[in-house]
Design a protein around this nucleic acid. Structure first.
Lengths: 207, 207
DNA sequence: TAGATTGTTAATCGATTAACAATC
DNA sequence: TAGATTGTTAATCGATTAACAATC
C-alpha cells in the first residue's frame, strides 16, 4: 500500500467521483470496463488502480459499488478530516475558503491569515503574526498559499518554520523548501501552456 | 518542434519564470546547472528541455539570458495573446477574471457568462444565451469553466458546439468531449490526494 | 457450459538519468 | 592548456498496455 504510484493516486479521486454520481439504489455493482468507458481511459488501468485500494471484484459482475466507494474514501482519507491553514485572503483565497467543498475531500480550512484582517463567513482572517501559535496549538501540517508571487517564498518559509510539511501553492512561483516538505504547485501556467499548444498544433495540422 | 513531450512543456513556464526573476542588467548568461539548482531539478533535464526551444548555448558560459527568455516566450506564445471566454462568474470565476496576470501568459479573458448578469471591472458578464454569437464573432477557441459541477457538462457541450476546442475545467467533475477537443482539468482533488498521502507516509515512517 | 470479467505476468512505450565526446 | 559546460547517445527506470490464465 505504501508504494502506490503518483499517477494512480491522482486518478483515484476521479473514480470515486464517478462512482458517487451513480444511483446506488439502481446500480449495486460496476465493472472496470464500465468505469473506463465513462472516464475515457483504459479498463486494465482502472483494474490495476483499483487493485491497490480495494480487496477484490468478482469476475463477470465487477465490484460492489458501496464497498468500492467506502474503500476509496478510506484510502484517500476523506473520512478523517485534516486541518489546514490558508495564507492570503484575496479573491482566490476567499474563493477557496468559501468553496466549502473541500470538506468532502477531508480538508478543513479552519484558519486564514492576511495582512488585511477581517471576518468572512464565520472564518476569522487573522494577522500573520498569529500563525505560529495557531499552527502549534492545533498541530496543523497543511498550508495553502494564495498570496501574490513576490510574497510566496517568505510565507512558505514561515509555514515550514512552524511545522507545516505539506504546502499547496497557488502563487505563480517556484518555492524552495527543505527535504521532507512537499510542495504541490497548482500550476496555472503549465495548464495554459498545454491548452495553447493544443490550439497551435490544431491550426498547423490544417495547413 | 511538434513532438515536444507534455512533461517538458509543463516545465518550460517554470524556467521562464525563474529567468525573468533574474536581474538582466547584472546577469547576461546562465547555465543549465544554475537553473537546475534554483528549481530543484536535474541539469541534464534542463538542458534537454531547453534544446527543444532554443538554438544553442555556449559551453563554459551557458545560455544568453535575454535570447533564452525571448525564445521561451515565443515558443509558449506569450507574445500573441489568445482570447478566451469564461463561464461561471462566481467567486472562483471572478478571481480568475480579476487576476489579470494571465495576460502575461498570452491569455485574454474578454467575455464572461453567467446566469446572474452584472458588470465587473470593465468586463461585461453576459447571459449564456449570448455565448454562441460572441464565440463565432471573435473566433474564440478557449473556454474556461468555473460553474458548479452539476452544470459543467452542459456548459461544456455548449462550448464545444460553438467551436471551442480547448477547455480549462475548474469544476470538480469529469467532462466528456468529442475527439479533437482538449480538456485541461485543474484537478484540486488530485492535488489534495497527493498532499494528504504525504502526511500519512510521514506519520507512518515515524512509527 | 459459455461468456464476461478479474487479476497477474510479460512486453511495450516514454521519460529520466547516466556517460561521454565536443567545444569554448 | 585546463576546466566548465553543452548536447547527444546509451542505459535505466517507471508507467501503460497487451496477453492470458483463473473465476464466477
Amino acid at each position: 500500500m505504501a508504494n502506490i504510484s503518483v499517477q494512480t493516486l491522482k486518478r483515484l479521486p476521479m473514480y470515486l467521483h464517478y462512482l458517487k454520481s451513480l444511483d446506488a439504489s439502481s446500480v449495486t455493482s460496476i465493472s472496470a470496463t464500465c468505469i473506463a468507458d465513462a472516464l475515457g481511459c483504459g479498463d486494465v488501468q482502472v483494474r490495476k488502480d483499483l487493485a491497490t485500494v480495494c480487496s477484490s471484484g468478482k469476475p463477470k459482475t465487477g465490484y460492489a459499488l458501496c464497498t468500492l466507494i467506502a474503500d476509496l474514501e478510506d484510502f484517500l482519507g476523506y473520512n478523517d478530516a485534516t486541518d489546514a491553514v490558508l495564507v492570503g485572503a484575496g479573491r482566490l483565497g476567499m474563493a477557496l475558503l468559501e468553496y466549502g467543498g473541500f470538506a468532502d475531500y477531508g480538508l478543513r480550512i479552519r484558519h486564514a491569515f492576511d495582512t488585511n484582517v477581517h471576518r468572512i463567513d464565520g472564518i476569522h482572517v487573522l494577522p500573520i503574526s498569529r500563525l505560529p501559535d495557531i499552527c502549534q496549538e492545533y498541530a496543523i501540517h497543511i498550508g495553502i498559499i494564495t498570496v501574490p508571487a513576490e510574497h510566496a517564498q517568505s510565507v512558505c518559509d514561515t509555514l515550514v518554520h512552524n511545522g507545516i510539511t505539506a504546502i499547496w501553492n497557488f502563487a505563480p512561483t517556484h518555492l524552495a523548501v527543505p527535504d521532507g516538505v512537499l510542495v504541490q504547485h497548482e500550476n496555472m501556467a503549465s495548464s495554459l501552456a498545454l491548452l495553447s499548444r493544443h490550439l497551435r498544433d490544431e491550426s498547423t495540422t490544417l495547413e
